[in-house]
Write a protein that binds this DNA or RNA. Structure first.
Lengths: 366, 366
DNA sequence: ATCCGGTTGGTAAGCGCTTTCCGTAAGGCC
DNA sequence: GGCCTTACGGAAAGCGCTTACCAACCGGAT
């Protein structure tokens, strides 16, 4: 008999109770530290627990009125379109920013004994809302990256379960957490115009509907104009937060023979990465020929040549803050509808034309 | 009355049944497509469901004998030691390889309506095993990155729940999924020695206990020696899979005035990244002065200057394969104890001394 | 010794589902 | 029309846990 293989029998609380010669209530009380059981009861239970390798079933605990201790996280997976060949084939799958956010969420969640339940959706998935709703019922609360749900469904769902959005917009039933887009972009614009003297500047966007990208766009444009420089704008500057998208914008502009501005502020670092790459393919060197900047300050930005000038967001802290906000809603009944904005910092490195810091490319706060 | 705020009442199957004028059994049958209910019954249930916005509770479903539809994933979070200053402060938190694996798992899981439940552990966490065990009881099966559990506990846990390891070793009760370390490193060694004529080569390790790193080390060393070149080895070549670790190894060697080999094969791309960075800080240029290679072929490797020569693993496929193996164990009772090895490919780019591909840095399969 | 507040353990209800087991209605055949 | 087969709906059990609720028991005061 090959019972060694199929011995997937997980001990239940009844097994423990029988083994310890007590009732299941006592076992539960010992495990949850309720009502201070007598030392010898506690000892016998603990021994039975270790002996049997008992771990309480999460589903049963959750069902019994308590928390699931799970926070659902939804990220948007970019649609795999790779027009520029296989170079970017799965680059699009390297979502550094969301992954870092998730790590921030996870670290914060761990302190409360929560776990992350992750689901990704791609936009053209007709079925995405079903999956998000299913995720909702496996979780105590939801953290949504980007805009993965249309406002109507968001509202509906937020009546059933606490929701925190990242890079979304706050609603009466929903809390939002984000970085200070406007402040960061204004500082960047001032630096590029006032310190470097650039006269023509463009903003390379993220997703067209992204509130973050929209905010960055308008703050940058306004500040550039206010500083007396000219803001190059138009639909051809629409990227998608990915390196491939940034590269594509450059390729198109060059193919059309359009004149490039003196500086390009990208919606995020990944886009900037693609832009720098595409420019170098055409013999244009950053920052010698043109300045390029990013947003986020993802870790790899610190290993690129040239070192990327960017606006730093406290990425992990964004995630941690989102979790704490959600936790407060779940456990303390904290009301939703807040808008939490974390500060951003201009990081001047090389790609804007600042001189390389000799010896070590250490970040310089602006 | 502010009931608008606290109306967190999630409808249950009873509400639906009442609304539709049927029994809860019928509702369940409609939702799970069992026993082909009569059209009008189905219609009334469906209407009640949409009207109330009902979504079945995951915990209750799971408890009722079915699956949780959750796969637990444990990653090892590097201990935050940043000896080289704040440059690498949270670079260590950018775990590109694990994150890509997870994406692969997630995509595969989604096809089966599973979700990823993620937990990270850092090695010095005394409490890590409790957390992994808790995760186990919230999941139908576990996928473990690295070696996050000692063999004894692994065995114990694997008797209760199916486990697939990545980059571990397969055991009688556990299936392992990994890339072909030996094959990839042999091809790399041959290329470096035979095609480039390097005479002294070193391997910069990952974690000392990582089976992957050990396999890469010995395959590389053996092939280098077999090809007649000399293999530089020793404890000073111990990295930790992170850029910071790679940089540190170089810093120490240079500080000691030790002669560098002609080529350094790193345990993974992240290490190589740190190595290249550290070398350039000391005026050593890759590949002019020294050759450096990676392993994994993470997407950013394609944007580095110089383009990184590396051994490509099908990263996302590793994740997807791990999930499918686990799923087979969970649902079809597939026995454990398999060892699944996916092929690797040598990718010759620039950092080994190969000429840059003109125009486009496209991967060249070896 | 009797009574009484304070503890501690056991019993049982119930969380929201799935599923088995019946009962009944509907349809096919003689 | 009566009988058998088949199809579907409903009642109820039960998944593994938490937590009232209640019984028993402790020591101290009377």
């Amino acid at each position: 008999m090959d019972e060694a293989e199929t011995a997937q029998a997980q001990p239940t609380i009844y097994d423990v109770a029988r083994e310890a010669g007590v009732s299941i209530a006592s076992v539960s009380r010992v495990l949850n530290e309720r009502r201070n059981p007598r030392p010898d009861t506690k000892a016998r239970v603990m021994q039975a627990v270790t002996e049997l390798g008992f771990i309480p079933d999460g589903a049963a605990r959750a069902l019994s009125g308590r928390l699931k201790e799970v926070v659902g996280v939804v990220i948007r997976r970019p649609t795999p379109t790779s027009p520029s060949g296989d170079l970017y084939a799965d680059e699009e799958e390297s979502l550094q920013f969301p992954d870092l956010i998730n790590r921030g969420i996870e670290v914060a969640a761990q302190r409360r004994d929560f776990n992350l339940l992750v689901s990704s959706v791609d936009v053209d998935d007709h079925d995405y809302s079903r999956r998000i709703f299913a995720l909702a019922r496996k979780s105590d609360g939801l953290i949504l990256h980007d805009q993965v749900l249309d406002p109507e469904q968001l509202t509906r769902l937020s009546r059933q379960i606490p929701i925190v959005t990242l890079a979304g917009v706050q609603t009466p039933t929903t809390t939002n957490v984000g970085g200070d887009n406007a402040g960061g972009m204004r500082a960047l614009a001032r630096h590029l115009v006032a310190d470097h003297g650039f006269r023509t500047l463009a903003y390379l966007g993220g997703h067209a509907t992204s509130p973050d990208s929209i905010a960055r766009h308008s703050a940058f444009g306004a500040e550039v104009t206010a500083a007396g420089a000219s803001f190059v704008d138009g639909p051809q500057w629409q990227g998608n937060y990915c390196a491939a998208g940034g590269a594509q914008v450059i390729e198109r502009l060059l193919a059309e023979g359009a004149p490039l501005p003196e500086a390009i502020a990208c919606a995020n670092d990944q886009s900037a990465l693609g832009v720098v790459h595409a420019l170098s393919q055409h013999g244009l060197e950053v920052p010698r020929d043109i300045a390029v900047t990013g947003f986020d300050d993802i870790p790899v930005a610190r290993h690129l040549r040239p070192l990327l000038t960017t606006v730093r967001q406290p990425i992990q802290q964004l995630g941690a803050t989102a979790f704490e906000a959600l936790y407060a809603m779940v456990c303390d009944g904290e009301p939703a509808g807040q808008d939490i904005i974390l500060p951003t910092t201009l990081i001047r490195r090389e790609s804007c034309g600042c001189l390389p810091t000799p010896g070590l490319a250490r970040a310089v706060a602006g």
